[in-house]
Structures are given as structure tokens and as C-alpha cells.
Design a protein around this nucleic acid. Structure first.
Lengths: 350, 350
DNA sequence: AAGTTATCTGCAATCGTTTTTAGAAATAAA
DNA sequence: TTTATTTCTAAAAACGATTGCAGATAACTT
């Protein structure tokens, strides 16, 4: 009952293997009806591994994310998956933010997939020779590796998002504004920290170094960061938290310390969530379309796979919107958006 | 600069391809040092597709889930991934609850992966001949297909969980208890509905058919279900919602209708979330270890791949705990758990 | 040193396709 | 009917590894 091969089909019909192969590839063939029948009767399915070996293609694309459990990354993966359609299947790797695992994973991946969508954990993650040699197509999403800024990427407008967030706080009269940042060694960590600083500078607010605490994008990290903020002799009155997970942690800390939001502490997060609306109080956040990011990444990857490195790297950016709810003191929720223009800029750098 | 093959290495060293191959497989070889050097210099990496073709193994396992964006499924996938370790890589497919897509996906998967972890959307999803013929190992997680109940599976103790939930409501004095159920054509939908009924029966509470509304496991579905409950002339005073997404929808409906929780309506959900603690009011839920479910599934799948269908099907069950917070009227949060015994029963059925 | 045993090696076949090449059959042109 | 042209076909050579077999080295025995 082991699987029938193309030669079984050929034998049964009385033609050569090559004829069956041509039939399968859509060429016109004399006994196509007989072949069709034989295939059905033998329940023949072409051996994909043999086909791959011959063609040098695998029909697969890998996606490396720090953690599929983070809804933001899940959205990216989903976006990539729908954009891939039936053309490519997805291989998933969660690295748990460990650059060594990333490198090991990529090493295994080369030759096993036709391309890679890559969310590196740190900007100084090791570069892979195959990628640099442009023999293994990759597009970076959300984060880039500093040595490889010149590759395809789909980022978010972190700077603008952070600017929006911080300004929103300022507009509510705050001047003692803290920022719980992600690792500044990561693209979004850095970008958002810079946006935060820029907003303060724009409004001529002095930066208090105590109010900037660098954390690690995790719930626990956010919790500890907020706790340290609360332990300051002079507390901030508002805080901009640099990602979704840390915001949850910060909220837990606030709740535990019985600090009233937004009265005693205003808070704004980065990345929206289905539940943000339902927490107490409803959470004001910066939001961007992660699904779209994933889809754009897949689209440019497929293009790159097909065309090779003929065309220059595409560096796409997705916009960030302010979703106003109630955690910053606003009383009436609203959304400040760039209308429908979600792909903000698509700078082509040679 | 195209990739070096094993024959390049062999030529460079002056040995035969088989010798290099043996070296790679860990046999003792005379010129191992030379070979090692040549491999490094040529940057030789064995061609996986050729290896697969020869061995008939792919080193890959697929995971089919309805939607990776649902944190519960993401946890399953993550659990499976860590359990796989370095032995197998994961291929991910989200089917969007479409049985046809499931079937198409499985068809493509056969021959491309060594086994499958499968969360089918409906119990009457089509059976696949390769699976039935036990020529393609599969383990079902969370849900099963009715025709294939005799295969490996890792379910949750839905019945007991639902019983716990409903009893908790009853203990708080409720008698008009509604259930927003998932599709009763799905394993958990059915199991939880039955647990709900059993609890009512145990307490000799008459079942009000108006209070049972079958929905679809989505946020929107939960929202609509709750709305229909609120539109009843005689409203229930408490509701047990059958999964995480529908709970979010129900909560949204409650908020929109300005119904006070738990005073006017007590609510308990199925599946916990990092944010459940932070919503208003903190949500009481039934929780189970989805990560563990995924890990167990992967473990039994790998075993199955290695051993074939010699040993009888394993049907594992993971326990469900009550996590008490405040959405049912309790004032002091606590957790009712089966201590550390998370794998409840492991019934071996021949 | 010769015989016996244990290791290691190269050759060739194999895995199941696709693709090139050259020849056979069919069709069109003269 | 013969020649020129177009289509199809089969045989064979890839693709890049692994493995059984038989012969060659090396390592022990006595």
C-alpha cells in the first residue's frame, strides 16, 4: 500500500514516465484520458521531495518571530499567511527573543525554504552569510538588524506613533511624563524612545532621566518598570508604555499599588487589543495594522523570490494611529487616524 | 557561488562521496580532519531535499488550527513547538474554521510533513483517507472528528469545566443561568453545553430553553448572543460563556447596554487571559493549560511517528480549573485547582 | 610472518521526479 | 507520392544525497 510512483502510472498506461510527467505539467498528451484514469485508480500523488530536489524550490516560506503567543506577532503571521495564499506554505519559528536561536534556526532554514520573513529580536543579531550574499531572500518585519538596514523591510512608524502618544499626554496637561521603553537595541524600542523625546523637546519640556526606564517588552518587565516609577520620590503623572505586553504589566502594577487611572496616573500603550476597550479604564493606545504588516511582508518576499535582487530594496512603513479611550483623562473616546492611508511611506533606497 | 555539493567536498579531499557521507553521519573515517576542513572552506551544507528524498522523512510536522490569532490556539502552537525541540520544525496552517480548507490543506500536507497536529473546526469535518489508513500520523487537539474518535487526541475536560462554572454561578444564588455555547457540532461546544446541563440537573434547576443560545466561538457571535439574551422579556441573572472570544463579545454587549456586572448580570468565561484580571470587573473564568495541551500533542505525535501504529491510541485529557475573580459576585479572588495534577486522565482505548 | 578478524573505503544502485535530446509519428505542403 | 514541417514520445541524464556490497587496509593473534 505504499505510495504509487510516476513509473507505476506510466507502466499501467503503457507510456513512458516522461509522458506522464508532461501530462502533469499541463502539456498536451496523446493518452491523457487513460493517464488521468490511472492516476485516480492508483491514487497517485507526485512525491514532493523528489520534485523539490529537481526544481530546487520548496514552495515554503519561513516566519521567525520572537513569540507567537504575543497577539501582535500572531497578527503578523496571519497576515503573511493569507497573503501567501495557495502558493506557499508557512513554516513557523518562535525564538523566545534569543539571538542564538535565531541564528541556529536560520541556518537550518537555508535550503529548506525559499525565503524568510524575519522579526529579529535585537538590532545586533548576527548576520547570516547566505542572506548577505543575497542568495536567500529575506524581508524584515517590525525590526531590522543594523548591519542589514539595506534589505527589504516592513516597519511601523514608531517615531510618529510615539510622538502622537506623548503629545496626547501633553495635551492633557501633563509635564511629568515617563516612558517605559523596550530595549533600545531593538528597532521599535529605539524608534519609540526617540519619538517620546522628540515630543518633549517640541513642547520644551525638560527630560527627567528618572522618567525613562528601559525594559524588555515583557509583562514582567513592564510590571517592574512601573513599580520602579511608583517608587520614585517624585512620581510622574503620566506614562507612555512602549508595547502591548509591558502595558499589561504596568497596568497590573498600577492595580496592585491601588493607583487610580487616569486621576493619579495617566497611561497610554502601544498596540491595540480586542480587550483594551474592556479594561478598567478603557485603554488609550497607539495602534497600527499588524495584519497588514505581515501581508505586505509576504507580498514583497514573494516578489523578491520571483525576481531576485534585480529591483532595489523596498522599505515599507505602516502608519500609527491614536485610539483615544479613557486612560489618559479623555471622557469621550475617538480615533485619530490617517483616513485609509495605512501604508504611510514606501521609500525606495538603492 | 551556487552551493557546494557532497561531491565537491569529496573531490577536494580526494575521497569518495560515500566517505564524506559517512563522516557526516558520524562514522569514524580516516581523513576526518581533511574533510572537516574542506566542508568549512567550501561552506558545504547538505542538501536537505535530497536527503529527504532518500530517507522518505521530512523532519517537519504540521499544525492546523482554526486561527492563530486566537491566543488559545497560539498557546497550543507554542507548546507544540517547544515540545518538538530541535527534532522537528513546524508548519502552520490557519483554516479560518473552513472544513474545506482543512481538507485541502491536509491533502497538500501528506508527503510534505511526517505528521499532523490537528484542531478540526467541526466534528463532521471530512475524514482523509491517508489518516484513516494510518499511513499519515495525526493527533487531534481540543477537538476531534466524529468518524475518527479512535485516534490519538489531547482534549480538555470540558464537561467538568462547564460543571464547575455553572455550579459556581449556582453557589452564588443564581437559578436563571444562561449559556452562550459554541457550535454543538464541535467537541468543546458540545462538552461544555453538556456540563452546563448536568450542573443544572444536579441542582434540580429547570432548564429554560431561552437561556441556551448556540453561537460560533467568535467575538461577534458572543456579542449577538448576549444581546439576544438581554432582549428577553425575562432576562437571566447569570451567564456562562463557552469560550474566550465569545466572552469578549458578551462583555462588549454588556458594556454597551450598560448592564452592571455582576450586580445585574454575573458572567463566567472559558479560558483565561493575561488581561482577564484587568477588565472591569476582573473576570472569573475556567482555565486550562493550553500550552500543555500542545506539548502533549507533540509528544504523542513524535512517539507515533517513531513507533507507528503499534501501540493503541492515546486519549489524553487536561484538567480545567476555576479561577475566581469578581465577575460572579465573589469579593475575594481565589483559584480552585487540582493541585499540580494537570493531566487529568489518560484513558487508553484500544 | 602468516592467518584471522575488524575497520574502513569506493563503486554503483537507489530515492521519484523533471528536462534535454534525438528520433518517430503525424500533419501539412508541394 | 514525396518532402518539409510540426507534434509527441521514449530513453537517458540530471538533481544530491544514502547504503549494500565487496574489496582493501589496518589491527590483532599466535
Amino acid at each position: 500500500m505504499s505510495n504509487a510512483t510516476i513509473s507505476d502510472v506510466a507502466k499501467k498506461v503503457g507510456v513512458s514516465e516522461s509522458t506522464v510527467s508532461r501530462y502533469l505539467s499541463g502539456f498536451k498528451v496523446r493518452n491523457s484520458e487513460l493517464i488521468k484514469r490511472a492516476i485516480k485508480e492508483l491514487n497517485y500523488r507526485p512525491n514532493i521531495m523528489a520534485r523539490n530536489l529537481k526544481s530546487g524550490k520548496t514552495g515554503m516560506v519561513a516566519v521567525i518571530v520572537p513569540d507567537i503567543t504575543n497577539p501582535f506577532f500572531a497578527a503578523i503571521v496571519r497576515g503573511a499567511e493569507v497573503a501567501a495564499g495557495d502558493d506557499y506554505m508557512l513554516q513557523l519559528i518562535s525564538t523566545g527573543d534569543d539571538p542564538e536561536k535565531e541564528e541556529a534556526a536560520i541556518r537550518r532554514l537555508v535550503g529548506r525554504v525559499d525565503g524568510l520573513i524575519y522579526v529579529p529580536s535585537k538590532e545586533n543579531s548576527p548576520a547570516i552569510s547566505e542572506i548577505e550574499a543575497k542568495t536567500f531572500p529575506v524581508v524584515f518585519v517590525d525590526r531590522v538588524i543594523s548591519k542589514m538596514k539595506n534589505f527589504d523591510s516592513v516597519l511601523a512608524d514608531n517615531h510618529h506613533g510615539a510622538l502622537l502618544a506623548t503629545k496626547h499626554l501633553i495635551e492633557h496637561g501633563h509635564t511629568n511624563i515617563a516612558h517605559i521603553a523596550g530595549p533600545v537595541t531593538s528597532t521599535p524600542g529605539k524608534g519609540r524612545a526617540e519619538g517620546y523625546s522628540a515630543a518633549l523637546k517640541d513642547s520644551k519640556i525638560d527630560k527627567n532621566p528618572d522618567f525613562f526606564v528601559e525594559s524588555d517588552f515583557t509583562v514582567l518587565g513592564g510590571y517592574q518598570a512601573m513599580m520602579s516609577l511608583l517608587n520614585l520620590k517624585k512620581r510622574p503623572s503620566a506614562v507612555f508604555v512602549g508595547n502591548n505586553l509591558m502595558t499589561i504589566g504596568a497596568l497590573k502594577a498600577l492595580k496592585e499599588a491601588k493607583v487610580k487611572v487616569p486621576e493619579q496616573m495617566a497611561i497610554i500603550g502601544f498596540d491595540d487589543h480586542e480587550l483594551s476597550d474592556l479594561v478598567n479604564p478603557p485603554l488609550t493606545v497607539i495602534s497600527r495594522d499588524a495584519h497588514l504588516q505581515g501581508a505586505l511582508a509576504m507580498a514583497t518576499l514573494l516578489e523578491r523570490i520571483k525576481e531576485g535582487y534585480q529591483f532595489p530594496p523596498k522599505q515599507l512603513k505602516v502608519d500609527a494611529n491614536l485610539v483615544v479611550r479613557m486612560s489618559c483623562g479623555s471622557t469621550c473616546p475617538y480615533r485619530k487616524t490617517n483616513a485609509d492611508k495605512h501604508v504611510l511611506s514606501s521609500s525606495i533606497s538603492s
